[in-house]
């Protein structure tokens, strides 16, 4: 068994206000790209993306007064391609209490890395209906993609080492180098 050791303390690459500003900008971009966002629904990926989707929904309501964008969450653990390769991580409960047929779904996550979570999310979304289109919003794109997936809205592109851990919260973005 290889035990991984965190080296030194994490490096802050975005502050809390930086994250908040990024969310505001993405909210504007979603509204702009979708001509007012009337057909848009937000789906935060469990667990890291849900609070970001909540904040995006709030900001969009401020930008377009009277527009309440439906906001749900999706757990992709049953759609992952690495089931059986790693210990079971307890999943969260999906909650999409609205019809996604014909809607523009914006998937929201904290970090985009290999793209496998997004692939699983695209597959999971199919069980709920057929969206008109799917867009992807992330706070951090850290590179190292293993699938042909790209984000539509990005808070910040941050180059990382493959072993780094990237943590996103309201307090900012922290990168911690991990050596095995």
């Amino acid at each position: 068994m290889n035990r991984e050791i965190k080296v030194a303390s994490g490096k802050a690459v975005m502050s809390g206000p930086d994250v908040s500003r990024a969310i505001s900008r993405i909210a504007h971009e979603i509204v702009e790209r979708n001509q007012g966002a009337h057909n848009v629904v937000l789906v935060g990926l469990q667990r890291g993306g849900t609070w970001i989707a909540d904040q995006l929904a709030e900001r969009i309501a401020q930008i377009e007064p009277g527009l309440n964008v439906p906001n749900g969450s999706l757990d992709v653990s049953m759609h992952r391609d690495d089931i059986g390769l790693r210990p079971i991580v307890p999943g969260a409960i999906s909650d999409i209490p609205f019809d996604i047929n014909g809607a523009v779904v914006v998937l929201v996550d904290d970090v985009l890395y290999t793209g496998r979570t997004v692939r699983a999310a695209l597959e999971g979304l199919n069980n709920f209906g057929r969206p008109r289109s799917v867009q992807l919003a992330v706070i951090v794109d850290r590179g190292h993609r293993e699938l042909p997936i790209r984000p539509d809205f990005v808070g910040k592109n941050i180059p990382t080492q493959i072993n780094d851990e990237v943590e996103v919260s309201v307090d900012g973005v922290v990168i911690t180098a991990v050596q095995s």
Binding site: N2, D82, G84, L85, R86, P87, I88, Y113, R116, E165
Partner: peptide
């Protein structure tokens, strides 16, 4: 069934791959 059949083997590098 999921708990019994989807067990990961030994802890491996995939475990820390959170995204």
């Amino acid at each position: 069934l999921f708990d019994v059949l989807a067990r990961g083997g030994e802890l491996n590098s995939l475990q820390e791959e959170s995204v």
